[in-house]
Computed example of a mutant assay.
Amino acid sequence: MDATPQAFDRVLSSMCTRPHPAAARAAQRFLADNPGDPATYPDVAALEEHVLDALGTVTGLADPAGYVAGGGTEANMQAVRAARDLTASDDPVVVAPTSVHFSFQKAADVLDVNLRLVPTDDDYRADPDAVAAAVDDDTALVVGVAGTTEFGRVDPIPELAAIAREAGTRFHVDAAWGGFHLPFTDHAWHFGHAPVDTLTIDPHKVGRAPIPAGGFLARDDATLDALAVETPYLETTSQATLAGTRSGAGVAGAAAALDAQWPDEYRENHERATANATYLAENLRDRGYDVVTPELPLVAFDLPEATFDAVRADGWRLSRTGSGEARVVCMPHVTRAMLEAFLDTLDTARVGTRE
């Protein structure tokens, strides 16, 4: 096989990154272990409990229920599935801002629930008034995002949680990407800040665990009980996860990544990424580009199509938001030298395309 893994020296749009060396080593040791049958594979099951405890520390919840999922899409789907199964409505509705991740559309399609999207405010955050107006007796779940994938915005989580509580419905926070930045900010975003029922946080993003290693957390075991099905041929008698066989490598890698980096290395990564995002935003503004001021270390800016195509043709992995802005995610592999080289390419492309 001649294929080679993606190099990260020009990857600016991905929310995945190089795994931490300790995480890569741990993952290799557990390639054949299946946490989907914890009675048969007790060592990796113990590591999964260790990951849950560590993620609970990150997200302000002692003794969390949950598991290491395949990623944010699976975790978000499980939040919708639990809400659907626990609601009294025969026509369940999920209320979410338009900034919500596309995984919720997948969840709505697969689980046959109605996804009701509501507008964001002028700064791309969920609008609590619009959310409150959209909630009704059929609402099974209200969703907030703590680190949106297009603009890096943090929704007003306590306000959204209060709306869900007043309506007697469940509340989910998608912090798949933002969850390893937010502990080092002043944002209110997790179980300790609001009555959150479920939360998504992905170690395989900013957490630098190997893929796949998502995180699905719940405030109590009742959520997992609602998801559980019997598994008569396994040593384990029931299973609450969406996938059956799961990655022992992801579990072990997440455990090692958290042990190696929480909290000091994660704080250093956040500070470095934030400084890089500020540097990029300022330099883009100096060149006359319209830039969305970064909140978390993600920079979105207007970039004409011809220049965008020229930058891509030069090997930079760059993507656009749904509304057309170019976006750069300052992941752990993104260095100041990379951003300087990107700006040089942008300058050359701009001259060549005569913006």
Rank of each mutant, 00 (worst) to 15 (best):
A132K: 09
A164E: 07
N76F: 02
Q28N: 00
L61R: 15
D123T: 12
G60K: 07
A75Y: 12
A132S: 14
A140P: 06
A45C: 08
R81T: 08
V58A: 08
D53T: 13
A164K: 04
G152C: 12
V118H: 12
A162L: 14
E150L: 12
V113S: 09
N114E: 15
P156R: 08
L115Q: 01
E166A: 15
H101A: 14
A134N: 14
H50C: 07
V44T: 03
V113T: 09
V80T: 04
Q28W: 09
D123A: 04
R125K: 15
P158T: 05
D136A: 09
A132Q: 11
A26M: 07
L160C: 11
D123N: 02
V110E: 14
A167Y: 13
G70E: 04
E74K: 03
E150P: 00
V80D: 10
V68D: 11
P97H: 13
Q78T: 02
V131N: 08
T120N: 13
A88I: 06
A39T: 13
D33W: 11
R153D: 05
A45T: 05
D112A: 04
A79Q: 10
P97F: 13
R153I: 06
N34F: 01
A83E: 01
D109A: 14
T73C: 09
F151I: 01
P38T: 07
G56Q: 09
V135F: 05
A126L: 14
D37R: 06
D123F: 05
V145D: 08
V145G: 11
S103I: 07
V110Q: 12
A107L: 08
V154G: 06
D63E: 15
L117S: 13
V113K: 02
A45P: 08
E166M: 01
D138E: 07
S103Q: 00
V44K: 03
A32P: 03
S99T: 15
G168C: 11
P92N: 09
V95W: 01
Q28R: 12
A126T: 15
Y124C: 00
A23I: 09
T139R: 00
T57M: 13
L160N: 03
A79E: 00
R125F: 00
M77T: 10
D90S: 14
G72S: 11
A167E: 12
Q105T: 13
A133G: 03
R29M: 05
D85P: 07
D123E: 14
T149M: 14
V118S: 13
A140L: 13
G72D: 05
P38F: 03
A162P: 12
A146M: 10
R116V: 15
